[in-house]
Design a protein around this nucleic acid. Sequence first.
DNA 1: CGAGACATGTACTAAATGGTTCATATAGTG
DNA 2: CACTATATGAACCATTTAGTACATGTCTCG
Lengths: 219, 219
Amino acid sequence: MKKEAQTATTNANTVRATDAEETRLNILEVATEEFSDKGLSGARIDEIAERTNSSKRMIYYYFGSKESLYRAVLERAYTRVRSVDTNINIYDLSPAVALRSIITTTFDYHIQHPEFVRLVMNENILRGAHIGDIPGIKERNRKVIDNLRDVLSKGVSEGVFREGIDPIELHMTISALCFYNVSNRYTFAYGFDRDMSSTKALGRRHNSVIDIIESWCRA
Amino acid sequence: MKKEAQTATTNANTVRATDAEETRLNILEVATEEFSDKGLSGARIDEIAERTNSSKRMIYYYFGSKESLYRAVLERAYTRVRSVDTNINIYDLSPAVALRSIITTTFDYHIQHPEFVRLVMNENILRGAHIGDIPGIKERNRKVIDNLRDVLSKGVSEGVFREGIDPIELHMTISALCFYNVSNRYTFAYGFDRDMSSTKALGRRHNSVIDIIESWCRA
DNA sequence: CGAGACATGTACTAAATGGTTCATATAGTG
DNA sequence: CACTATATGAACCATTTAGTACATGTCTCG
C-alpha cells in the first residue's frame, strides 16, 4: 500500500518524508486509542504494533520506548485541545454569551473526545508523572484563565455578573462539570441507570451545566 | 507476631478465626493501596504480597485471582462510602442546612479518601467492567437520590429552593464538584500552579462548591 | 490421640511483554 | 554508480508476572 503510494508520486523526496511522517502518525493514532483505552500500564506495545500499518520495530525506531510513546500521545492530545479553546473569540461577544460559548465548547469537546478525558484520567492515576514533560501547557492554561478573567470582569462592570468569582475556581468548575459525566460515565450509568452517552441525557446535562454556572455568576 | 497474639488468648477457635480474618483484611488493605495507586493493570501481586504480613500464597488462597482481589477491594471501598452518606439524617434539618450538610460530607469524604476516588477512576478506565459484580450499589444510590429528592421538594414547598431541579442532576453535580478536585489534582496542579491538597485551596474550593450548588437551587 | 480441615511457606512455571540484534531494502547524493 | 542515511522486517532475548504444586504446620473434634 505504501509502496503504491510511493510510485504514484513524482517527487520521491516528498514521498519518502511523507511516508515516514505517515507511519509516525499512524503509530501515534493507534497508540492514542490503546493508551486511552487501557492506560499506560494496561496498554500493550505488541497490540499497538499489530493494529498499526507498521511494526513494533518502527515504534521503537520512532519513539524509543513505551513511555516516550505515551508521552508523545499525551502531548498530541493536549496540543489538540489547545487548538480548540484558543479559537473562541471572546471580545466580540457579550460576557453572558461569551461565558455560555466557553461552557458549550468545553462541554462538547469532552463529549466528542473521550479519549482525551481518559488520557487525563490515566495521567492523574500516574500522579502527573509525565505532564511536566509536555511543553506549552502552562501557557495555554494561562490563556484560558486570562480569557475567563476578562469575561468575568467585563460582566461585572456591565452589571450582569457578580463580583468576587475567582477565574481559576470558575475554570475548575467548568472543567469538573464537563469532565465528570464523561470520566465517570460507567460507574454512574451503572449506579443510576442513566446512560450518560445518550443524546437525551447529554442534552439535559448540558442545560444543567450552563444553568449551574450561570446562576453562580449572575449578579 | 501472629503467634504471640495466638498464645496470648485462651479461646483457640476465636483466635484462629480472627487470625484468618486478620490476614484477609490485611491483604485487602494493602491491595487497596496498591490498586488505588496503580490501577488494576499497574498493580503487582508480588508487590502486594511483600507489603502484607502474609504471602502471595495466601492472597491466592483467600482471593483466587488478581481480578477477584481487585473486586473485593472495590466492593469494600464502596461499602465504606455507603456507611458514610447513609448516616446523614436529613429529616431533622431545614432543607438548606440539609443540602449543605450533604455537600460538606461528600466533599470531605472525597478529600479524606483519595484511594476511593482513584479506584473509581480506575474502574471507569476499565469501562465499569467489575462494578456490576458488586452488590448493593444500586440500592445505596437509590437511597441517595431519594434523600436528595426529599430535601429538594421540602425546600420547594418551603419556598427556599426553586422548582424543576432533577435530583439525579443534582447528585451528579455534587459528585462532579467533589470528585474532580481530587481526581484531577495532578494535572490541574501542574497546569495552574494551584496545589489542590493545600488546606487553603481546599477551603476555598469547599466554599465555592457550596456556593455554586446553593445558588443553583435557590428559589 | 489421630484424622481431617484449615492455613501457610518455598520453590517453581508458563506465558506475556518491553525491548534488541542483525540483516536488508530503498532513496537521494557526490 | 557507489555510498550513505533513512527506514523496515524477522527472529530473538531477558525479565517480569500471574498463578501453582507440594510439602508442612496447626487447630478442632470425635
